[in-house]
Write a protein that binds this DNA or RNA. Structure first.
Lengths: 163, 163
DNA sequence: GGTGATTTTGATAACGATTTTCATTTTCAA
DNA sequence: TTGAAAATGAAAATCGTTATCAAAATCACC
């Protein structure tokens, strides 16, 4: 287990103790409070995506969530991911290998480091980059309103498994 | 015209004077020297992509290149883009609105600033970021081997046209 | 310049991922 | 418990991209 993964688990636990909700319960509650109904299909998808440390494609979500709720249909996975993205609970992650994976969104805007082998993804903070970004924008005549910073590499676990 | 666009034109002119080739001619020559034949279809695609300051989708390339060579087929555009990418003359650009646009590749690895309105794209240098990137990697247990840094905004021309 | 092997082409069909349609089932407020 | 509304899964439709194939274009050789 990486330090980052461990930290994210600790943070989740602290959050759980403070609020009394797991991430899964929090997401389900947000779905409900936004007028969406709670169904077994949605519970299965939410449990899969919220607990995953990896960016998952709709098909991967489908396969994993079906083990919790076998009647699940792939279309419902697409529809649920759409709603979770709309509520800003997940985000689409772009990778060299494709752009259809989804990952739990962290608080605040952060940057990503992703494993090329297994898709494990972790957020990191970029210190005072915004200043540099709008400087670059000015220099080129752009008004910057969004930025992507992603690092790709091999995580410790994948390096260990390969040797 | 932005400073960046102006600069890239100046750089291209300097390159032309030094080497005696336009970008278009240089690309065509590289296609040929890699065993590919020169055809009217390829000339039309190369002229379109090499001269564009914007990231263009295969369909956009098709539409623009067809005005030069009306017999052109969309499939040939895909095939030509594939070869240009293989020769590292162009790169696929990922955007919020989609991930199927292609842009002339600049010398050396650089970062991109892209207009959300019109797709205009320019490269910029990121000073000593590599150090920070591998630091982040180490902290999270990753061996970093690739990075993406892209800024999105509205270019000067689009801001002017809107007001 | 002509010739012919080889590459390239465009039209068509095939493909895979995603979205739409629709009748049935499920949810949840009353 | 009931019923209106939402959500579901299966099937069909759609979209961008890729494979197939016979015809056309390229270019090394004469």
């Amino acid at each position: 287990m990486t330090i980052g993964a461990l930290r994210s688990i600790i943070i989740e636990n602290v959050f759980q103790q403070a609020v009394g909700l797991s991430v899964v319960e929090s997401w389900l509650e947000q779905l409900q409070s936004n007028g969406y109904r709670l169904t077994n299909a949605r519970r299965a998808v939410v449990q899969t995506v919220a607990r995953s440390q990896r960016a998952l494609s709709p098909m991967q979500v489908f396969e994993q969530a079906r083990s919790r709720y076998p009647a699940l249909g792939l279309v419902t996975v697409y529809r649920t991911l759409e709603k979770l993205e709309e509520l800003k609970l997940i985000q689409r992650v772009h990778q060299l290998s494709g752009c259809n994976a989804y990952l739990a969104l962290a608080e605040g805007h952060q940057h990503l480091i992703i494993c090329l082998e297994c898709g494990r993804a972790e957020y990191f903070e970029g210190e005072q980059m915004e200043g540099f970004f709008s400087q670059v924008g000015e220099r080129h005549g752009y008004r910057v309103c969004e930025h992507w910073l992603q690092l790709f590499g091999i995580c410790r676990e994948c390096r260990t498994n390969e040797n």
